[in-house]
Amino acid sequence: DFNAVKTLTSAVGGVDVCLAKDIKDPDSKLDLPKGEHTIEGEEALAFVRTRHSVGFGGDLSRIELQQQFLGSMMRKLKSNDTLTSPSKMIKLAEAGTKALTVDDQISTIKKLADLGAELGKFDTKNLTFATVPVVDNPAEKIKATVVLKEPQAQQLFAMVRDDVSLTEVKQEKKKEKAAEAARLKGTKAPASEVRVRILNGGAVAGSAQETLSWLQVQEGVTKSENAGNAEQPLAKTTLEYGPDEADQARRLAEIMGLSGAALKPGKSVTNSQGVPAMTLTLGKDFEGAGVPLTTPEKVPEDVQKATADKVECAK
């Protein structure tokens, strides 16, 4: 409900916005000169609804404007101690219960206030707004719609799905990432020397055989075999290997586009030929032979993003 913008902005004492140019939009009724302003109520509603006077004059430009507005609201909540002041938080929660439809678990003023107290510990530099990259629909002569820009859109989705931060990674995460990356460094065995058993652990039926054929015919991993279905389904594909198989694991990871997180140092198993082999278990994230499973660690260049700690001026 857009009317919530009026109620909540008034409850926090207005939201600071910045304009890089004069904006006069007869449709949204926003009329503000270039510069910094504190807006609330009807004026705040007009700000988040305007689109014809910013960017390219479309919905995508309005999305960017609304992201700037939400970032500014978070800065305001942090700067005036609303989220840490019980009296201010109760006032905001009262406005929220009237303006918003929320889950039953946070439907009371007290529960919303408790949630606000937790948000008070939040650092705005870790709040990122991102817009999925798109391009004009190539099927249209008169451009009216957009389609996802690939592969950047899927890369962004993968980061969200795998909980990869769009801002800075915490120190403990950095150490974990470094350890995972180290598993990929070192010598790699020739593809012809890679011994691996392939299990289907949640991928589409037939994926193990498809991968086996692809590895043997196209990648030269001839010492591979289909071992059927895994005992337990896995959300993500893994490669378990013994201490003396690390060079084989690195080669297979390179071929399949596996991340260091997918490599699981452990023990080898005996294959049908009676010799030690690694175990590749295809998880639910497996999308097909030859499709890399590595999640990007950085946001693709074409993804528009902004963090809530920085002031952005509407253009």
Results as ranks from 00 to 15, higher is better:
43 E>P: 00
43 E>Q: 14
43 E>A: 09
44 A>W: 04
44 A>S: 01
44 A>C: 04
44 A>V: 06
44 A>N: 01
45 L>S: 07
45 L>I: 08
46 A>V: 02
46 A>K: 05
46 A>S: 09
46 A>W: 09
46 A>H: 05
47 F>E: 01
48 V>I: 10
49 R>W: 00
50 T>W: 02
51 R>C: 00
52 H>L: 05
52 H>K: 04
53 S>M: 15
53 S>P: 00
56 F>L: 12
56 F>W: 09
57 G>P: 06
58 G>V: 12
58 G>K: 09
58 G>I: 12
59 D>Q: 13
59 D>M: 05
60 L>Y: 09
60 L>I: 08
60 L>D: 10
60 L>K: 07
61 S>G: 06
62 R>Q: 13
62 R>E: 00
63 I>V: 15
63 I>N: 13
64 E>D: 13
64 E>M: 06
64 E>K: 14
64 E>T: 09
65 L>E: 08
65 L>S: 06
65 L>W: 04
65 L>A: 14
65 L>G: 05
65 L>V: 07
66 Q>R: 02
66 Q>H: 09
67 Q>T: 09
67 Q>N: 07
67 Q>L: 07
68 Q>D: 15
68 Q>V: 13
68 Q>L: 08
69 F>E: 04
70 L>N: 12
70 L>A: 13
70 L>V: 14
71 G>V: 11
71 G>C: 08
72 S>A: 15
72 S>H: 06
72 S>I: 04
73 M>F: 10
73 M>K: 07
74 M>T: 12
74 M>I: 15
75 R>I: 05
75 R>L: 05
75 R>V: 04
75 R>W: 10
75 R>Q: 06
76 K>S: 10
76 K>V: 08
76 K>Q: 15
77 L>P: 08
77 L>Y: 11
77 L>F: 07
77 L>M: 15
78 K>E: 14
78 K>C: 11
78 K>H: 14
78 K>M: 14
79 S>A: 15
79 S>P: 11
79 S>C: 10
79 S>E: 15
80 N>E: 14
80 N>S: 15
81 D>N: 15
81 D>I: 02
82 T>M: 07
82 T>P: 03
82 T>K: 10
83 L>R: 05
83 L>G: 03
83 L>F: 11
83 L>M: 08
83 L>D: 06
83 L>T: 01
84 T>E: 05
84 T>G: 11
84 T>P: 10
85 S>F: 03
85 S>N: 13
86 P>E: 06
86 P>F: 05
86 P>T: 09
86 P>I: 03
87 S>Y: 13
87 S>D: 10
87 S>N: 07
87 S>P: 01
88 K>G: 01
89 M>Y: 08
89 M>A: 15
89 M>P: 05
89 M>S: 15
90 I>E: 14
90 I>C: 03
90 I>R: 15
90 I>D: 10
91 K>Y: 01
91 K>R: 08
92 L>F: 05
92 L>G: 03
92 L>T: 02
94 E>H: 11
94 E>R: 11
94 E>S: 09
94 E>I: 06
95 A>S: 08
95 A>H: 06
95 A>F: 07
95 A>K: 02
96 G>H: 12
96 G>W: 02
96 G>P: 07
97 T>N: 05
